[in-house]
């Protein structure tokens, strides 16, 4: 177990109860199986997987922190660095690229004034080039903060999305 953090714990009661629900799916001696869901639950609250999150999740599940970090750094939906409030992941793989997915990415770059991997100065948007989202029939597609799939994103719908998120993020 790692030392009790000096800062207040990041794992909220709500997060703990959601993690407990995930743990119930696995044999009692396999707490590690819930590591991905635990990290996803905490990331929803904290925005990114900080070293403190790693330590707390590791302590909670009884894993070495390095094993938690290995998972956090292997799976691409985890943010191991702080990012903008809204992570926009645009799929540019071949099927999407053929059906205007690449164009959607270019449009967002221009609209937000940033390149892939960058965050807008106001800290609102981080633009990412994503690998296959498994929704090629809806191209162009993008994900907002990993959870919300936005389909058929022509320029008008991209504009509407940006406007909506700017409003919500104010």
């Amino acid at each position: 177990m790692s030392a009790v953090p000096e800062t207040p714990p990041l794992l909220s009661d709500a997060a703990r109860s959601r993690i407990e629900r995930e743990l119930a799916k696995y044999p009692p001696e396999q707490r590690q199986s819930a590591v991905m869901s635990a990290l996803a639950i905490v990331q929803d609250e904290t925005g990114w997987i900080s070293p403190q999150v790693i330590d707390e999740v590791a302590a909670y599940l009884g894993m070495p922190p390095i094993a938690v970090y290995e998972v956090a750094s292997f799976y691409t939906l985890f943010n191991t660095k702080p990012i903008g409030r809204y992570r926009l992941s645009v799929c540019t793989n071949l099927p999407c690229a053929l059906h205007d997915g690449a164009k959607a990415g270019e449009y967002l770059k221009e609209r937000l004034g940033i390149d892939y991997g960058q965050t807008t100065p106001d800290g609102l948007f981080t633009l990412m080039e994503s690998e296959c989202l498994g929704s090629c029939g809806d191209a162009p597609v993008l994900l907002v903060n990993n959870k919300r799939m936005c389909s058929f994103m022509d320029n008008a719908r991209l504009d509407a999305l940006i406007a909506e998120l700017k409003e919500a993020g104010r």
Partner: peptide, 27 residues
């Protein structure tokens, strides 16, 4: 029956990588 979610790794479609992933490891 339980649902388990991935979190962004194509390789986990490979069946033994998928098993590693359910076990809470790198896929």
């Amino acid at each position: 029956l339980h649902a388990h979610h991935g979190f962004g790794a194509y390789i986990c479609g490979e069946e033994t990588a998928l098993l590693e992933s359910i076990e809470g490891k790198k896929g």
